[in-house]
Each structure stands twice: as structure tokens, then as C-alpha cells.
Write a protein that binds this DNA or RNA. Structure first.
Length: 277
DNA sequence: CGTAGACCCTGCGCGC
DNA sequence: TGCGCGCAGGGTCTAC
């Protein structure tokens, strides 16, 4: 479901509400996520405070005192809800944490909900976070490393499509199916062009587009399609700002061309036939 | 080796 | 109203 801007929006929401909170209790209702939940490991975290909420790629990192981090990935349909009282349970509420925030009487509940169960909740030692299999081979953070030369170097000799290349987390993280289309529209690059055939000047455009599209989406609070919510359960609103994604047969706002959709390996790609080459 | 495609799972909207 | 189908934002594995 979420791409980098959505995850970053959720991270900020969690940090605002849960920093310094102490874990009081945990309940695992369904451990069958992408990586099976280790219930006893999660239960063993009771009593610890949340020291920071970080992010690497689309992984949320809940750092606890005592060298423990909970890695949370939302997959396609995952949500994290922060609730002040016991809201009605959903069939797909898999993990519940009860937390006591500093200076507040009532405890709050953090709830992990994920109908498709493509996400995960994993406990690791903070000191060995970077070595963990989930994180070890991830590529660069696009909002931190903004070096177009790196993309050009990684793409050298590659015949795969530039859209596929941008979505490869070993190269650069956080770019999913929606923003890959949006970024390439912004850069005026056709999604099926071979990554290895893109000139340095065009990589500059692509890199700039990555930063702009992701930053704007974060500023807007994350894209909304069918079911996205931020940490408070509010709808994001960047969805209406998407230029090509989901706009098959509509008119390009830049050149008046027709927006087309193509499907590769079951994933839709949207692009303008007029101004992307 | 690089790359494309299948697959994990559930829910939703659409056409009939 | 009910049913079958296609589609969905991620990541990993397999086969060519």
C-alpha cells in the first residue's frame, strides 16, 4: 500500500504521539505475516520505552531502550492505528500494543492491521540493525543521497526498463509503482526506455524529479487511493495531485497528450504519449 | 548474470 | 442481489 512518502508520514505521526511511551502490554492475534511474528520476542519488550521512530526505505523502525528495535513493514494493505480507547476490533487486527505515553493518564493503543498480510513485525537488536537480512542489501535513500551520477553508474549497461530500475530497492529505495510513473512523467522520460541508454543530463532530470515528487507527497501527507490512512487514521490528500497514475485516457496537464496505461508483469504503468520519450 | 514473471493474500468495484 | 473477474500501492523467489 504505502510508498516512501506514506511511510514517512506515518513515521512522523508515530513519533509525535509515541515518543517516550512505555510498552505496557502486547497481544498477537495472528502471527501469519510475510515473516511469522515471534510472539514471545514481542512480549519480552514490555516495560521498555520508545526512544525514537525511524525509517529505512519503507521499513518503520521503532527504537526501544535496551538495544531493541521493532521493524514494521506495511506491505500493500498494512495500517498502523493509534487509538485513545479500545476501538472495535477488525478481523485483520493482527498485533496490538498498549502504551503509556509520558505525562498522560490514559494509555493508548497502537494497532497493526493488514488484510493481505504482506507486511511484517520483527524484533532485532538495534546494534545489529544494518546487518539484518531485511535491511542489509538496500540501496540509497533518495532524499538523502541525491547523486544523479550514482544512478547513471548503476544503470550502465543495463537493458531493463528505467521504470523497473527505479523500483529496484537494491539501487534506490522507496519508489513504488505509483511514484515510479509520477517521477518519470515529471522527468519527461518514457518508462520503457532502457536504463542503460539514458544520458547523464537525463539522469539529472530523473534525480531531480525523484526528490520533488517524494518531497511534495510527504508535504501533502501521503497519497490516498482506496484505503490509505496516516498514523491518526486521517486520509492523506496527495492523490488528487497525481499527474498520470490512474488517469488512463485523460489529458496530460503539461502537453495535452493522451495518458496511456500499460501492464507488465501485472503492474500498471501510466505515461503521457505526448511528452515522455 | 540479469531480467521477467509468478506468487504470497484479501477486498473491492464492476459487469452481467 | 449474487457471482465471477480483474485489479490493487510490496517484496521475494524461480526459471529462462
Amino acid at each position: 500500500m504505502p510508498e516512501l512518502p506514506e511511510v514517512e508520514t506515518i513515521r512522523r505521526g508515530l513519533a509525535l504521539r509515541l515518543l517516550g511511551a512505555r510498552i505496557e502490554d502486547v497481544e498477537v492475534r495472528d502471527r501469519r505475516l510475510r515473516v511469522p511474528v515471534r510472539t514471545r520476542q514481542l512480549l519480552a519488550l514490555s516495560g521498555r520505552r520508545i526512544e525514537a521512530v525511524g525509517r529505512r526505505a519503507k521499513y518503520l523502525l521503532v527504537h526501544l531502550e535496551g538495544d531493541r528495535t521493532i521493524i514494521i513493514h506495511l506491505g500493500m494493505s498494512g495500517r498502523l492505528l493509534v487509538q485513545d480507547d479500545d476501538a472495535p476490533l477488525d478481523t485483520h487486527d493482527h498485533v496490538r500494543w498498549w502504551l503509556s505515553p509520558p505525562g498522560r493518564k490514559r494509555r493508548v493503543e497502537l494497532r497493526y492491521r493488514d488484510p493481505r498480510r504482506f507486511g511484517l513485525v520483527v524484533v532485532v537488536a538495534t546494534s545489529r540493525l544494518g546487518e539484518h537480512a531485511l535491511l542489509a542489501s538496500l540501496g540509497r535513500e533518495p532524499l538523502v543521497d541525491t547523486d544523479a551520477g550514482y544512478l547513471a553508474a548503476q544503470a550502465r549497461g543495463s537493458r531493463r526498463s528505467v521504470k523497473n530500475f527505479l523500483m529496484d530497492a537494491r539501487v534506490v529505495v522507496g519508489i513504488g509503482n505509483i511514484y515510479a510513473s509520477e517521477i518519470l512523467w515529471r522527468a519527461r522520460v518514457h518508462p520503457t526506455v532502457a536504463a542503460g541508454r539514458i544520458a547523464a543530463s537525463r539522469w539529472q532530470r530523473v534525480m531531480a524529479a525523484i526528490g520533488e515528487v517524494l518531497e511534495e507527497a510527504i508535504a501533502a501527507g501521503g497519497t490516498t487511493l482506496s484505503d490509505y490512512r496516516d498514523a491518526d487514521g486521517n486520509l492523506g490528500y496527495f492523490g488528487s495531485d497525481l499527474e498520470v497514475y490512474g488517469r488512463e485516457a485523460e489529458t496530460c496537464s503539461r502537453c495535452g497528450g493522451i495518458i496511456r496505461r500499460r501492464v507488465d508483469a501485472g503492474r500498471s504503468t501510466y505515461y503521457c504519449t505526448g511528452c515522455q520519450h
